[in-house]
Structure formats: C-alpha cells, structure tokens
C-alpha cells in the first residue's frame, strides 16, 4: 500500500509552477489545454438552451478566424437529463458528450438508482460517464464495497443502448420533454462499444494524501478488474479529482497523487489510465502548470485529450484570451468572447 508524504509531495507540486513557459511553447500549451477541456455546466438551472450554447462554444471556442485555428474542446459535461440535447447539438463534431451520473455529486442513493442513472445517460448517447465513488463507504473502510460498485458502474457503461437501458421507468425519467422529444432514439453507438468511465474520488472529502492515493489505486484496480476488461484500452478509464461542488476541488498536489498512481499502474500493466483534475482551474497559467506536471511525471504520451482532461468552464475563455494575445499580440476584453 503506497503512502504519500505531504512535505515532499507539496514541494514537488510547487516545483512545477516554477517552470517558465514562454513564446512558442506557451501558445502550443494553451492550444493543447483548450483541446483537453471538458466544458462543463452542472447546475440545477441548466436548460437545453444553455447546453446548446455550451456545445457551440465547445466546437468553436472562438468566433473569429485565427491562424492556427483554436481547437475544439474535448467534451461537454452535463447532467444526464441534458445528454440528448448535447448529443444532437454536437452531431458531426469531434466533441464528446460526457455525463455525470451515479447520483452526482453526493452519490447518496441506492446502487440501483445510481446504476439506472448511468444506463440512462449511456442510452441517451453519452460517450463518457463521470461517476462518483461512495465516499461514505470509503471513509468507513468498506473498500471492497467501493470497488464492487465501481465494477458495476463500469459494466453499466458497456451496455449498448436499448429501451431497457433507460432505467427505472423508462420515458421521462429525467423530466425535460425537450430532451426526449427531439429525436426518437438515435442509437448513437454501435453494439459492444462502451462509454469511457471517469471515476471521481472527491479528494476534498477524502482529505488526506494517503486516502487520495488509496482511493486512486482502488478505483484503477476495480475498473481494470471488470470481467472482460482485460483489453482495457488506453484512456478508457480516468481518475478524476473532484465534482467541483466541494472545496478544495482540484489542487496540484492532489492531482500529482493521481498521476503517481497512474504511473505505477502503467509500470505494472502497460495500460494508460487517464487523469482529470476538475474544479478551481480557472486561469491559463494554472492549466500550463498542470501540463508541466503531466509531462514531467508521466511523460509526453499523456499530453493528449485521450489521456488528460480539465474539468472546467471559465478556463476556456482565459485560455482564449491568452491564445489571442499570443497570436495577435493584443489583449482582449472579457466581453470579446461569448459566454461558455
């Protein structure tokens, strides 16, 4: 059981922030960071209209022409009720639809309900599921329960869409008619394909570095041991720091622990697990610090949206502002960019 000592972990995490990223490497890093964003809206007041706007932003973050063009973000991340809207709006683009599920953000629901939540999102076309682990069980020391639940969620991600997959009562489970009324059943994925899974540890609630490391190892191990998961592909499973609903959310230190767990797993198995810090990363400069950390901890093969993501919303416009500055030499006002 690997332990984490806070003194040198914090020391190392701070070292990455001292790298000086200038000129060409800065522009390249900003563009890379943009392509790694899971552009997120997770509010009670989210509407289909807001999600459509978010999707437009995701595909084409900047309205103006710029050379080189600003890349699309990696995914939009929404509640299950809005997956259909997002899926439709993003049709034909490279941007994925990620959906939080399993009773996000608390996960304080029966396992049946959490699994139904996952199946419904997958059935509606979600390419990626962001699940929350059972922190209650983890902190009580019921590690096997946490692992079992992760395995079941991983299996639920593999279900091909079918009416049975819609969850408890089928039609209208997620309420918003507009979401369901748009298209009958687009059957967005082929049989046997599986949604990628991001496992949210909620590091802010786990509190200690040892807990975070243990949870990361447990999550990676559980997701890798699902029957039939022997051929786990690179990036099919992510570990993710936070829901964004708990303070502290992602920090350099907590993300570094995840990277170290992923590195050890790679050393043992040769499988590349993805990492996603989420919450609190609002500035371009912070994003560059994270990229430095990924590069120097896991290597450059992880510097791709397939293996590293930022869960963020405000970050997109700050990256944009810096990209425009690096490209044109001028700073722009915040109102020059559309709201995400």
């Amino acid at each position: 059981m690997p332990t984490v000592d806070s003194v040198m972990l914090d020391f190392r995490a701070a070292q990455f922030t001292k790298r000086s990223i200038k000129s060409a490497s800065k522009l390249e890093g900003l563009r890379l960071a943009m392509s790694m964003i899971d552009l997120t809206t997770l509010e009670g007041k989210d509407s289909p209209q807001k999600v459509r706007g978010l999707c437009r932003k995701a595909v084409r973050p900047h309205e103006e022409e710029l050379e080189p063009a600003v890349p699309s973000v990696a995914a939009v991340c929404v509640y299950p009720a809005l997956v259909k809207v997002a899926k439709e709006e993003l049709a034909g683009s490279s941007v994925k639809v990620a959906s939080v599920a399993t009773g996000f953000p608390s996960g304080q629901f029966s396992l049946d309900v959490r699994l139904a939540d996952v199946r419904a999102a997958v059935a509606d076309g979600a390419d990626e599921i962001d699940m929350v682990i059972n922190r209650g069980a983890f902190l009580a020391g019921r590690y096997e329960q946490v692992a079992r639940e992760i395995r079941e969620v991983k299996e639920a991600c593999a279900l091909s869409p079918s009416p049975f997959g819609r969850g408890i009562k089928g039609e209208g489970m997620h309420g918003q008619e507009s979401a369901n009324a748009l298209t009958p059943d687009p059957s967005p994925r082929g049989r046997g394909a599986r949604a990628h899974l991001k496992i949210i540890l909620e590091t802010g609630e786990l509190e200690t570095y040892d807990n975070i490391r243990r949870a990361a190892d447990l999550a990676i191990e559980a997701a890798s041991s699902v029957p039939g998961a022997a051929g786990l592909k690179d990036g099919e499973v992510f570990v993710k720091t936070s829901t964004g609903k708990v303070t502290p959310a992602a920090t350099m230190a907590s993300t570094l622990i995840l990277l170290e767990a992923v590195r050890d797993h790679y050393r043992r198995t040769g499988v590349r697990i993805g990492v996603k810090p989420a919450g609190g990363i609002r500035q371009a400069k912070q994003a560059l610090h994270y990229l430095v950390m990924v590069k120097e901890t896991l290597g450059e093969e992880w510097l791709t949206p397939r293996l590293f993501r930022f869960g963020a919303s405000a970050l997109a416009n700050d990256l944009l502002r810096q990209i425009v500055k690096q490209t044109t030499g001028h700073y722009t006002a915040s109102y020059d960019f559309s709201e995400a």
Binding site: R19, S20, I21, K22, S23, A24, S25, K26, E28, G29, R31, L32, S35, M36, R56, A58, V59, R60, P61, E63, E64, E65, P68, A69, V70, P71, S72, A74, G92, S93, S94, V95, L291, K295, E300, L303, T304, P305
Partner: peptide, 22 residues
C-alpha cells in the same frame, strides 16, 4: 461575414511539447 461552421478545429498535433528558452 463568416458564419461559424459546425466543424471545429482539430487538437494540436501529438508528441513533443517542450519548453522554449526562457
């Protein structure tokens, strides 16, 4: 007047992100 297309730009090419001289 450019009408934003539905197709976004691809992510930057993979492989090799190094630090410029600072």
């Amino acid at each position: 007047i450019a009408i934003p297309g539905r197709q976004g730009a691809a992510p930057p090419a993979e492989g090799g992100w190094d630090y410029s001289p600072a």
